[in-house]
């Protein structure tokens, strides 16, 4: 149904919209409204109803080019099928985690996978160093190596309870529960009100919630 290269949402079966809504915190109308957002994002560079990495970059950073490890990880986590593009169903699945009503365990898990750059099942010190270096470059901030190491040492002293030099998922969970502000990025308040943000869904709707 969501092979959107051929089908408009109008041709989608209600049951598929209902399935997506059923498996997510979204109502059917909210899924339809998110389809309006998906259409906009997926046609911004290549008009094929699939979100390519360049389109994700353009949406998040208003520039289609430039390498960034965070963008790569966000894209990989959205791209469940690992086929190099984000389809509508994958878009809904990933955004579900960012819904204010999504279970905190899902947010903790998503953030862990985001920061586990090498996907080893642990957040390693080198990965944290790499991510900190990336954000410093992105924001034109400079910190002395001494202060940088102090920040990372302190973070690991707090998070790495078994002192093995890496943060396991259980350690991450305990750590973010102690510092819930670290999950701030995992919630998008906009998702509570998508039908207002994308009212044009009403022209294609299959159902009145």
């Amino acid at each position: 149904c969501f092979d959107c290269r051929q089908n408009s949402p109008r041709t989608c079966q209600y049951v598929d919209l209902a399935r997506l809504a059923h498996d997510s915190p979204f109502s059917v109308n909210e899924v339809e409204a998110l389809y309006e957002l998906f259409k906009k994002l997926s046609c911004s560079i290549i008009d094929d109803m699939l979100i390519h990495k360049e389109e994700l970059r353009l949406a998040l950073f208003q520039a289609p080019y430039g390498e960034n490890i965070f963008l790569d990880r966000v894209f990989d986590l959205f791209d469940e099928k690992k086929n190099g593009v984000i389809e509508f169903e994958e878009f809904i699945h990933a955004l579900s985690v960012f819904h204010p009503n999504a279970p905190i365990e899902e947010k903790i898990d998503f953030a862990f996978r985001l920061y586990d750059l090498r996907q080893t099942g642990f957040i390693e010190r080198e990965e944290v160093q790499q991510m900190v270096a990336t954000i410093l470059m992105e924001s034109d901030m400079t910190l002395s190596d001494e202060l940088l190491n102090l920040i990372i040492d302190k973070t690991f002293a707090d998070a790495d309870s078994d002192k093995d030099g890496k943060i396991s998922k259980a350690e991450w969970k305990a750590y973010v529960l102690k510092h819930p502000s670290l999950l701030k990025n995992m919630t998008l308040p906009y998702l509570k009100d998508v039908t207002t943000a994308f009212p044009s869904f009403i022209f294609n709707t299959e159902v009145e919630d």
């Binding site: 957002l37 970059r57 965070f70 900190v132 920040i151 990025n185 998008l188 906009y190």
Partner: peptide
């Protein structure tokens, strides 16, 4: 007590400041 070391930001707080991790960009175009 008596320490003069500055308040140290958590590394993940710093990392969380990346624009690429702020998906609200989807809704702000």
């Amino acid at each position: 007590k008596g320490s003069d070391s500055p308040t140290i930001i958590n590394a993940f707080q710093l990392i969380g400041m990346s624009s690429f991790l702020d998906l609200s960009g989807f809704f702000e175009q």
